[in-house]
């Protein structure tokens, strides 16, 4: 086991997993929030764009999107996000993780919006708030609190799904694991190390989100 840690940069690989998770997650939250606002907006075109986004990305395999980003967009269309091949792939991986999970964030938020009684939006409008203001001040704060638990599940799935990035880039944990198995042969120990690494990343998050969803729940 000491060999593995001294011959391979396991922590470095998990650091990339964390970076992919962090920026992918941040992007997913932003995209998902925008999509959720579009899906409940009074403008039909907005609603259409929002639901098209969700349906396209929720129903496309993540692996396919990863491959498409590098093979399709970079090699065929020539769109690069960085000069270095590895950097380019890592950035694409973040973008793909964000776009893909944004669709799930949107649905989690929408389930949160459904926990907000219609009367809240009516009262907000009756006070004279614009659509944007009632979203910002009244609906979304309550929707976020009502969707903390499903949002937690999406973020945990996102962390685990960073392993799919291994199809285009070798830097993160799953990519390193593949390399180690290639050179050292598979062993239960190697799987255990990487599995444990992910549990260390995801479990505290799960506990945090469960307690937050309880603490921040809107009392009605």
């Amino acid at each position: 086991m000491g060999d593995i840690f001294s011959n391979y940069d396991v922590l470095g690989a998990f650091w990339w997993t964390i970076k992919l998770s962090f920026f992918g997650g941040l992007g997913a939250l932003v995209l998902g929030t925008i999509a959720a606002i579009m899906r409940v907006s009074p403008v039909a075109v907005m609603r259409f764009i929002g639901s098209a986004y969700v349906n396209i990305f929720r129903n496309t395999p993540l692996t396919l999107l990863m491959v498409l980003s590098v093979l399709g967009v970079t090699y065929i269309l020539g769109v690069t996000l960085a000069d270095d091949i590895n950097q380019n792939a890592l950035r694409w991986a973040m973008v793909v993780l964000a776009v893909y999970h944004g669709a799930f964030v949107c649905e989690a938020l929408r389930s949160g919006v459904n926990t907000v009684p219609a009367g809240q939006a009516e009262a907000a409008r009756a006070v004279g708030l614009t659509f944007g203001q009632s979203m910002r001040e009244v609906i979304l704060p309550q929707a976020f609190r009502g969707s903390i638990a499903p949002l937690g599940s999406v973020l945990i799935a996102l962390i685990k799904n960073t392993t799919v990035a291994a199809v285009i880039v070798q830097a993160e944990a799953a990519g390193l694991m593949q390399r180690i198995i290639e050179f050292e042969g598979g062993s239960f120990l190697i799987f255990a190390i990487f599995a444990l690494g992910f549990v260390v990343l995801t479990m505290p998050l799960g506990i945090l989100f469960t307690s937050m969803s309880r603490r921040l729940a809107v009392k009605r």
Binding site: P117, G119, Q120, E122, A123, A124, R125, A126, V127, G128, L129, T130, Q133, E137, V138, P141, Q142, R145, V218, K219, R220
Partner: peptide, 29 residues
Amino acid sequence: AQLRADVGMVFQSFNLFAHKTILDNVTLG
């Protein structure tokens, strides 16, 4: 929205903003 600001409305089910304090409910508008 501006016009609605000039028309107060009180609902059967109160509809106070559940995540805001009483004071913040009154000052939001």
